[in-house]
């Protein structure tokens, strides 16, 4: 009888083995996690997460590039023609469909704020160039239109609009 019990199904010793192993695995994971987590962005990097910028000084038809969280950000004062051109594009023509209105703040349609890294592999596209009167990335040939939407080339998505809001008429807070 005793031999049969030892051979059949689980007994107390099996339970202790599994329980000890499980506690050990959890302990090891708990030790390893901080060793990996230290690689994540640190407090000083995260502290740069929010900036303010006065867009008032940018004349119509010009752009500036500012830095937010170490990333370059385009702020463009668009002309009426550019806005019109962006709005005339049917959504069906877009690889990553988004209306022009969705990419700007209501009442501030002339301001286009976007992270300046190509959504393909992160190069900085060149402004006022490409086949769609927007941006052209020289690295792998992605064309963006005057709303920063991907139109042709290997990039999968539109240039990213960071979270931002207008604090006053000309002051924006990014992040």
């Amino acid at each position: 009888m005793a031999t049969q019990a030892e051979h059949s199904s689980t007994n107390r010793r099996d339970f202790l083995y599994v329980a000890t192993g499980a506690v050990g695995a959890v302990g090891a994971a708990a030790v390893v996690w901080p060793l990996i987590n230290q690689l994540n962005p640190d407090a000083s990097t995260l502290a740069l997460a929010s900036i303010e910028f006065d867009v008032g000084a940018i004349p119509e038809g010009q752009s500036v590039t500012i830095t937010w969280r170490g990333l370059p950000v385009f702020v463009r004062h668009r002309t009426a023609a550019e806005i019109e051109e962006a709005r005339a594009v049917p959504l069906a023509d877009l690889k990553d469909p988004q209306t022009d209105e969705e990419r700007v703040k209501e009442g501030h349609e002339q301001w286009l704020v976007m992270i300046a890294n190509c959504t393909h592999l992160g190069c900085i596209p060149v402004g006022e160039s490409g086949d769609f009167d927007g941006w052209f990335c020289p690295c792998h040939g992605s064309h963006y239109d005057s709303a920063g939407r991907i139109r042709r080339g290997p990039a999968p998505a539109n240039l990213v609009v960071p979270p931002y809001e207008f604090v006053s008429d000309t002051l924006i807070q990014i992040g």
Binding site: N40, P41, T45, R69, G70, L71
Partner: peptide
Amino acid sequence: KQLVLGGFAVGNPTLNR
């Protein structure tokens, strides 16, 4: 990507690691 770079873009933490 942020875990590898230690930030939102390539920077000092990236260089160090």
